[in-house]
Design a protein around this nucleic acid. Sequence first.
DNA 1: ATTTTATATTGACCACGGTCATTTTTTGAT
DNA 2: ATCAAAAAATGACCGTGGTCAATATAAAAT
Lengths: 192, 192
Amino acid sequence: MQKTIQKRTIKTRAKLLSAAEKVIQNGGYEALRVEEVVKAAGVAKGTFFAHFHDKDALMEILIANKLNACLNQAEAGTPPKTVPQIIAALEPVHGCMTSERYVFDLLIRYSGAAAIADIGPIAYCFERYFRVVMLWLEAAQMRKDVPSELLAEGVQAFAIQAMSLRYCALHSATTFTDRLETYLDAWLTPTG
Amino acid sequence: MQKTIQKRTIKTRAKLLSAAEKVIQNGGYEALRVEEVVKAAGVAKGTFFAHFHDKDALMEILIANKLNACLNQAEAGTPPKTVPQIIAALEPVHGCMTSERYVFDLLIRYSGAAAIADIGPIAYCFERYFRVVMLWLEAAQMRKDVPSELLAEGVQAFAIQAMSLRYCALHSATTFTDRLETYLDAWLTPTG
DNA sequence: ATTTTATATTGACCACGGTCATTTTTTGAT
DNA sequence: ATCAAAAAATGACCGTGGTCAATATAAAAT
């Protein structure tokens, strides 16, 4: 069971990835066509699918990259203490997530692992999001009657809800930030 | 600007819908092919797209029908008072929503309206879900420091989170019901 | 009845993601 | 250097959702 990876493999993969990024730079994620990517990379179509299981797999990688950069940024700053601070600290992440409807849909679809026991780059991002928020909450003065893991899961759930409603005609009166702040005030602030 | 609708139109539409239901009965939603539907309905492919904007539009209608039936059932019973009762009352709805991964993904995608100012049947179902839960919560003894609309929105957000995690390899240890109960206890129960 | 106009239906056609048998290139053994 | 086996790349091909100019049918006007 030997499986030597040739060096042209990583070269081709890199060509495909950078070609995809270039294609996305003008036109965005939604408009990306596999044919365009392989043409820009100078390889055949079949090669694409030898490197990525499907188009979504490429998208997962590219979007997860961007998202991880945003999470780095969020982690780098001083830990937020209050609800508005938390929302502000997460703003780049949420902004990235809703930069395109296509992106948001894909994120949701892959927020859990695609198949059991195979966790993809986007599922990993959500895990990271959860962990970052949990650490913030532990240091902040939030309600203590429930564990901070649970609080962090809730923040994620509410953030997704608030992002979803951005696309909804029925709820477009309230802005994303206002809505999320209302949610998190009710969820995180100790009552009494 | 007259627009008389011929009676064969509704006949053809009915044929397409019942054909689609038949196709779904064996094979499920995911496996539905437009060609199969039009063959079963005895019409041409183009006719399908004259009646439904795309395949998703048909799916929206069919799934929303099923979901509305479940919501009827939920509304018909005696209003639940406690968290476990609420979860039990919503069980058919959640069961329908997660009957297939394909269905859940589509639901999420159309939970907000597809385009601004055009609210589809699935977005309407989510609105209904929200309203039903809100009425229950008003009558039940839940925390009163936040309005019941907000509480109901939270229930929806947590339910979606719990359903999402059903598909996630990282969180498959806890069952859906247990997870949702944990969420809702923390969200709905008054502290202190 | 006949003609005109609005409305429905048709099916050949296209776009695009994905497959796979075949060919080319690399690697390692002799 | 030569050859055999493994790995990678190729591009013709397929499945399926969706389009549209052409055609057929129904309703309205004469």
